[in-house]
């Protein structure tokens, strides 16, 4: 316990890094995921194809492998981002595939008649997607998107492998300096919980708030 209390400022700083990493990556992942879900239901074949290739490639590669490939691979061809930026890019690209699949599932829950009515009014594909289909799709997938968010909180721990000073990195660091891994990582776990539990509650509240009456 003392190890954690003695290093409380460091834990709080690291919690903030983890939270930032998660929130920024999630916002980007939502953007990427929504766009890609749109690609995957688009009438344009090359876009559908592009969306599928992206999802299948990235989703089926371990996050740790993606991080290593991105950091070392791009360094090799002369492209360099800070480790923090690299972590955000890889986390959002990876999480984007899960968002895309979740949003696509949401799109499939929207009755086909909704899109037909929108087309009958003369809306173009992107208009009907953004004005009619997606608003309803999102409402039905708040809970699964919440799970993606919580998974991301924990996945962000892998950023510690490229020296981003988040909760996991702090755990490793303090373990090395104090030799008390159990106490230290219990501390890390506690702060992860502190982020994840309220997120779950907020998601539940949000889901009830935006539910579509049918």
């Amino acid at each position: 316990m003392h190890v954690v209390l003695d290093n409380l400022p460091a834990f709080l700083r690291a919690t903030r890094v983890t939270a930032q990493l998660t929130v920024i990556s999630f916002l980007l992942a939502m953007l990427i995921g929504t766009l890609v879900a749109g690609f995957r239901v688009s009438p344009v074949l090359p876009l559908r194809w592009l969306g599928t290739v992206y999802v299948e490639l990235v989703r089926n590669t371990p996050l740790l492998v993606l991080i290593s490939l991105f950091v070392f691979g791009f360094t090799k061809i002369g492209i360099r981002y800070s480790y923090y930026a690299s972590a955000i890019i890889v986390l959002s690209t990876y999480t984007g595939t899960f968002v895309a699949e979740t949003v696509r599932a949401g799109i499939n829950t929207v009755a086909p008649g909704q899109a037909e009515a929108a087309r009958s009014l003369g809306l173009t594909f992107s208009q009907l997607l953004f004005a009619v289909v997606l608003p309803q799709a999102f409402r039905s997938v708040v809970a699964p998107l919440g799970s993606v968010f919580i998974a991301l909180i924990k996945n962000s721990a892998l950023a510690s492998t490229i020296a981003v000073m988040d909760l996991s990195f702090l755990g490793t660091q303090l373990t090395n300096s104090t030799g008390r891994p159990v106490a230290v990582f219990m501390g890390s776990a506690f702060f992860y919980l502190l982020l994840a539990l309220p997120s779950g509650w907020a998601i539940g509240w949000f889901e009830r708030r935006v539910a579509v009456k049918r």
Binding site: A111, G113, E116, A117, A118, S120, V132, Q136, V212
Partner: peptide
């Protein structure tokens, strides 16, 4: 061309 459907298809949201 206006279209009216059997199942109304009003935008639920």
């Amino acid at each position: 061309v206006g279209m009216v459907f059997q199942s109304f298809n009003l935008f639920a949201h």
